[in-house]
Amino acid sequence: MSIKIINADVSRGASTKSLGRRLAPYGFISPTAALLFVLMFIPIAMVVGYSVMDNVIVNKHPQFIGFDSYIKVLTNSVLPTAVMNTAVFTVVSVIAHLVLGLLFAMMLNTKLLSNVTTGLFRVIYILPWLFTVAIIAILWKLLLNPNGVINYALISLGLTDKGIEWLSSPATALIAVTFINIWAGYPFYMVSLLAGLQGIPKDLYEAAKVDGASGFQQFWSITLPQLKPIIISMSMLDVIWTSQQFALIWMTTGGGPINVTEMLSTFTYKLAFSNYQFSQASASAVMILVLSTILAFFYARYQKARD
């Protein structure tokens, strides 16, 4: 009888231990799961919910209206401009980030410069990445001001006879904000690609040299293929980040002049905080979310394939 009791205790103890062991992993992931639930799942679910209701927030008793807000957003006359501007801004920024990042990374990886010089340039090149968006916007607004340093230099060099309104002219505003975004974002590529370059085995280049490959051939056949995984991953991330850029545009041009720098982000912000059309803003945000999710899906699939 007593033996039976002991066995039952042992069995219960083992079962408790086994249950505890099984639950422990869930305990460990619970803070992250809670964070994701509170900061990701709930807001996303709320925004999706808002997008199918009659003007939520402003209206105390909103009604379900289906996809009316989506139709209104899709037929908004400013949307095509915002989509086109976002596409131009994103594509040009991502390509320029890549080209400049690769160029500077290769310069910093060269053996032709001393360690001190390389270190100095490493600091200089990475500086734009250290500034917050607000600082970048103020800095470039001052530099590109019609009475600013850049115009002063251009006038002094005789390249123009009066100050160019870089951010205020419909002809140059989109180019100007794209340029600022390129300046602010290339260091991310540079640092990642530099790490990638330093990881390429030297014997590949030595073998190529023995085979008589030129510098360009080495770059094309060794460097680029070796960096391909980093380039693809970063480009996908950059497309997602750049297409959602808001603060820089808002603080430099506010989407103007007229709507030449209107992006999907500023378009959505104005729907919510200027028009108080929170349902339409939610619909616009959901559409951006879907596009970002598609990109994220390809990014995740690519990463999985690599692993």
């Binding site: 062991r21 422990a24 809670a34």
Partner: peptide, 23 residues
């Protein structure tokens, strides 16, 4: 095992606190 158990309880409690604080 005990250490892991305590840690997991702490993690769970912090998660619950987080949710409560946020809500």
């Amino acid at each position: 095992t005990v250490k892991r158990g305590i840690l997991s309880i702490l993690a769970t409690v912090s998660a619950i606190t987080l949710i409560t604080a946020c809500s």
